[in-house]
């Protein structure tokens, strides 16, 4: 049975591939059948700096992030923040459940965008964060972009040049969805206008 089929049916007890059969509990036996290169890879598995996810998985991860309930991620800050988040997201019947809901709402609450920005920054700054840096950076710049475009508000103290650079980088990521790209492009245009003195 191939792995793909096994994934579809969790009740199946074992995975059989071309060369090796590995049941759910025979990993020690598999170790004894393995050569040095595999054992070296296994030994290195405990190294936390190794990438958790492949670059080709970023699109799926970003998609998942955008549809994820904000309360799951942001509620982890502390109980006060969680309560505040719940209150804010349910306020005025906005029902902002996911990150995508927030970014693409015509008038999102600025406090929520700031919470998302802080969450993304915390992940970017944390050496042991499992969230891919690219995804955290995208959340960070998208929250800033949403505040700029939807609320005409600046929630970041980054210098324009740095902000423009970050927005540009995010916009260029192939795994980004079109709606988010559009938002980032608008923000980039607005920032460029700011630099030319178009906005006070």
């Amino acid at each position: 049975m191939k792995l793909e089929k096994r994934m579809q049916d969790p009740r199946q007890p074992s995975v059989t591939v071309d060369r090796t059969v590995m049941s759910e509990s025979d990993s020690p036996a598999a170790v004894f059948q393995s050569r040095a290169n595999k054992l070296a890879t296994l030994l290195a598995t405990g190294e936390e700096h190794a990438r958790l996810w492949r670059p080709d998985e970023l699109a799926a991860i970003f998609r998942h992030q955008m549809s994820a309930p904000m309360l799951v991620d942001l509620g982890g800050f502390d109980s006060r923040t969680a309560t505040k988040l719940r209150t804010l997201s349910e306020a005025q019947g906005l029902l902002l459940k996911s990150f995508g809901d927030l970014f693409h709402h015509p008038s999102p609450l600025i406090e929520l965008l700031e919470l998302v920005k802080n969450f993304a920054k915390a992940n970017l700054d944390h050496p042991e964060s499992g969230l891919p840096g690219e995804i955290a950076a995208a959340l960070y710049y998208t929250s800033i972009a949403a505040a700029l475009i939807r609320l005409d508000a600046r929630i970041s103290q980054l210098p324009d040049a740095d902000l423009r650079h970050g927005l540009q980088w995010t916009l260029e990521q192939a795994w980004l969805d079109e709606k988010t790209k559009e938002l980032l492009a608008q923000a980039l245009g607005k920032i460029s206008g700011v630099q030319k003195g178009a906005m006070s």
Partner: peptide, 28 residues
């Protein structure tokens, strides 16, 4: 399994579906 069987690891999408992971942070 990918180490022992020389297979491609199951994709992110498959993992979140199988384990009901709520967000990338949850999965990571």
């Amino acid at each position: 399994e990918p180490i022992f069987n020389d297979t491609v690891p199951p994709a992110y999408d498959q993992l979140i579906e199988r384990f009901g992971l709520k967000s990338p942070t949850d999965a990571s």
